[in-house]
């Protein structure tokens, strides 16, 4: 099913940041080819928060990795900021947050956040200023001299988000960043993430397998299903941008969650 039409009609007239047209990705494995992505069409515009949800094997992470040029589609076109994904990666167009925080154990929290800035050759004074600013944003100012093992899992993940925000990329790619955290920590981080998104206005792609998380965070929800990995539904969220946690008990919220659930079930039903 093509989702491009719905998205184009409903999205605000902001400039497209990510455009996928007929993206296929087939992995050659020992058990024969695996179609990780099949005919994926999607346009993501500036400032959107788009969640990708689906069971494992549906290609949500693979799609994110294609956007990041960590994987190469076998067919179709995929542009980021109007250039190829590879060029966008070279132009440092996005920050990527992985499932695990992946902080370097030998660097302090500040040192970890500074890592991309060092690699990208920011002047030293600016490095310090940026590290301070993003650590304040994720409320880790008091922990800048600590080493990762001295922080809880949630704090480590916040530090890794700060690391992705430290440089001037206007796209944020997040691959199940809170998947390993408990419900309570996850709620808090979700709230914080929305605040960060409102402040930074970064176009955000967010992979998750939690329906409430997807509905709570997103302006648009992309439902995917496996074998072959494809988009089965794209839902524009009518929820307002300001979202207190209580919004999850509202009627609209529950309706969207319902539709996501149905999309997931439908995807399973017609699986090959």
């Amino acid at each position: 099913m093509s989702a491009g039409g719905i998205a184009a009609a409903a999205a605000p007239a902001a400039a497209p940041v990510i455009e996928a047209r007929g993206v296929d990705l087939t992995f050659a494995t020992a058990d024969g080819p695996v179609e990780a992505l099949k005919a994926v069409d999607l346009t993501i515009r500036k400032g959107e928060f788009v969640s990708f949800i689906g069971p494992s094997g549906c290609g949500k992470t693979t799609f994110l990795r294609c956007v990041a040029a960590l994987e190469r589609p076998t067919a179709g076109t995929l542009t980021v900021n109007g250039m190829s994904a590879d060029d966008a990666r070279r132009a440092r167009a996005y920050g990527y947050v992985f499932q695990a925080a992946g902080l370097y154990p030998w660097r302090t929290i500040a040192g970890n956040v500074r890592l991309p800035l060092e690699i990208m050759g920011y002047p030293r004074a600016e490095q310090e200023a940026r590290v301070k600013a993003v650590l304040a944003m994720v409320e880790l100012t008091d922990f800048e001299r600590k080493f990762p093992w001295q922080l809880s899992g949630g704090m480590q993940q916040r530090a890794s988000i700060a690391r992705a925000l430290a440089f001037d990329a206007d796209v944020l790619l997040m691959d199940e960043p809170f998947g390993a955290l408990d419900e309570i920590v996850r709620d808090r981080l979700n709230e914080e993430l929305l605040r960060l998104w409102a402040r930074t206005a970064k176009t955000t792609l967010f992979v998750t397998h939690s329906i409430p998380e997807a509905v709570y965070l997103s302006t648009r929800i992309v439902v995917m299903s496996p074998r072959p990995g494809r988009i089965t539904d794209v839902i524009d969220s009518p929820l307002p941008r300001a979202r207190p946690l209580e919004i999850r008990d509202s009627r609209t919220f529950i309706e969207i969650a319902q539709r996501v659930r149905e999309g997931l079930r439908a995807g399973h039903g017609d699986a090959v």
Binding site: A68, A69, L70, R89, R90, R92, Y94, G95, Y96, F98, Q99, A100, G102, Y104, L115, P116, I119, M120
Partner: peptide, 12 residues
Amino acid sequence: PMQLDLLATYSA
């Protein structure tokens, strides 16, 4: 691999 991917995203 994740740590290597991270550096790839910085195009290090």
